[in-house]
Design a protein around this nucleic acid. Sequence first.
DNA 1: GCCGTTTTCGGCCCGACTGTTTTCAGTCG
Length: 601
Amino acid sequence: MNPELSNAAIADALEELGDLYELDGAVIHRVVAYRNAARSVREASVSVAALARAGRVTELPGIGATLEQKIIALLDTGTIPAAEKLRAKFPPGLVAITRLPGIGPKRARLLHAELGVDSPQALREAALAQRLRKVRGLGPKFEENVLAALARPDADEPAKRLLLPQAVELGAALVEGLVEHGPADAVVELAGSARRLVETVKDIDLVATTVEPTALADSLATLEQVESASSASAAGARGVTYSGVRVDLRIATPAQRGNLLQHFTGSGAHNAALRERAVRSGMHVSEYAIEDESSGAKLLCADEAEVYERLGYAFIPPELREDRGELEAAARGGPGLPQLVSRGDLRGDLHCHTVASDGRATIDEMAAAARELGYEYLAITDHSASHGFGNDVSPEELREQIERVREANARLSGIDVLAGSEVNVLPDGSLDYEDALLAELDWVIASVHTAFSMGEQKMTERMIAAIEHPLVDAIGHPTGRMLERRRPYAIDLDAVFAAAARTGTMLEINANPRRRDLSELNARAAVAAGVTLVIDSDAHGPETMPLIRWGIATARRAWLTAAEIGNTRPWSELRTMRKRARPRAAVGGAPARRRGQPPRG
DNA sequence: GCCGTTTTCGGCCCGACTGTTTTCAGTCG
């Protein structure tokens, strides 16, 4: 029997069908319904295929009887009949055209019907022959824009995205520049996905208030980072940096600062859901005001929290604004939002490197950095013997390192230094130190660093073997992904989470901004399955230990509280949670702790 | 196609910008 389709595969199929219906001229709400359903499937924390087999898939938001049937057909036959029909009608090249800026489904359909355009290549030929301008509603300018879009070397690949720290840094520099060059009263803030602390960012969104909006809009073009700016008006301006990042500045009056910040922080899905719910109670929400339908009164909010309050919600932290159940939870009479974990809750860092392997600093230097951050403990976890791309730590060297850690711990005050290792999980699931040596360590984190492409079943068995090892306390960066660089290895995370919960093995949120691994959705699913997480910096030097903030960001976006994170506890408590410290009978027999699941996600 | 502190039918967020138009459709976020 074939393995069931992944949530991502089902979501892709629904998204494609939505695109095809849109090309076919379906009413837009139907198209939107497919896209909402696709997102719901993609973000589901359990196997949607399994849910569908159990007849429960309509429990997911946005999935009704019709989509249930289509998902079942997809699982049974590998395809959806409606999609087959539409694929025959609209060639894939036509769908590709709709990805070009300025061309949506309507124009693609028009070009197909009027000129027989069915691919980017055919579109280019038609534009060069000046045939596009003959179509009603299109003109020479459109032709020009089409050719420019097609000429871009990266026209058919998705745009590179900034890692969050780069976006935050660029955003801060732009804010500073606008404050410096703009009118004296200007207040400028970073909004958009960077404010929500997402993993990667496409463009920089800034909001500002001033009584001289055009002066501020004009000043965007004068910033040293900005290569070109356009369409400056009282409403704002747009620009592109020399690094090729789009910047969107929106301006309102000081009295509307809250409305604007709320709108421009997004996400789009959060705002759409917020506004739809508001409409049902007779309110219309925009970036400028909340309008009461019955009285016509327009409420301006200088403060963002007031926007939520006036609409009947508790304040929703930006990290949660993804339409993943936060509105239902924050609504008056709802269950309420969790008290999200914050940086100050962490009492220690359980994954870092020193000069013993590929780190840049000594034990003492790393311990000093940890103390500086207010931690109570730090585990030194250099790579193990077979790491292969740094300075390996042989068993003998690890024994010496343990001695050095014990000595440092005795000497240093204000910080407990723990002897640990980041042990390789070898392809067969075994570890590369003997158990007797591992038993001398305070903390063992096991990670996969080799043989990434072994296939899902083998990788899952490999990982579960490591999870079942009695001396493995946690699994490091559990999916191996590198944002914008390397996909996660194929692995059955449901099985991994179940094994981790069953054995009491913790899983890591690796805070390195290129990893953020587990991701927010996976972290949320892991905790729902009963797993305890740890948040680690994986620092290779004192200066990278503060990267922990990006791991905190992921945990917050995963709705996690301090109680769900192991290293918010003092070491005296956390050490007893390691499965090696538990009564032997409990290992393997502990029932999964279940947390109340929010309505979505 | 989904969904319900108005509704099992009739709604479904809101506004800016562009290019094409003499008042607006399409696209985008």
